[in-house]
Amino acid sequence: MKNRPLFLLGLFLAVLTSWAGFVLGSHGQLGSLTPFFDEADGQSHPARLPGLAARGQLVYADLGCVACHTQQVRRPGFGNDQARGWGERQSVARDYIFHAQPQLGASRLGPDLMNLAGRNPQAASADDLHRLLYTGSAAHPAFPFLYETREIAGESSRHAVRLTGTTAPKAGSEVVATERAQTLVAYLLNVNTGFEFPEARPLPAKSAASPEATK
């Protein structure tokens, strides 16, 4: 360690190789992924997020939903994501190319939020999500600051949350989703991995069973 510049150069090179290898390396591998054009339905997949949903991603990020929820389905056989109905296939990098900031998450104190709208049998609806966000549950905090309670003036708002029982507002007033709540819910209903990309198909179990082998 006597050679002063060499020491600092060594440090610098160590970090540079690590950064270039991992960050630039994975960018080289995944950065130029394009949507997949499916000739069967004449559409490209994945679709861009609608504007409302793209704004909802910002709300999702600034509330830190990622602290308890993931948005990545693991492959069949690794964990039991399929048994929980979170998605038939694993998430792949192409699913996220139109996400301004993918919210993959690292903790599952709550359920995974991929494919919320397309789940079978319990697909979530906008109403369910608004109710959960407004009232909370035993396992989920409420976010009342995303909603405002106000007097019904004339017709009731089309963004009013349908509430019953003790959480319902008093007669003559209504709980209305603010713009932030609307965009958040639009986002949650639009994050999906519905289309099966070629790279997302599980490898065939035995190569002998594949058509090429039997030819």
Partner: peptide, 14 residues
């Protein structure tokens, strides 16, 4: 100059 898609997650974890 954000990288696209999941590469962001790689960079953030790194």
């Amino acid at each position: 100059s954000p990288l696209r898609g999941v590469v962001q997650t790689v960079a953030a974890s790194w």
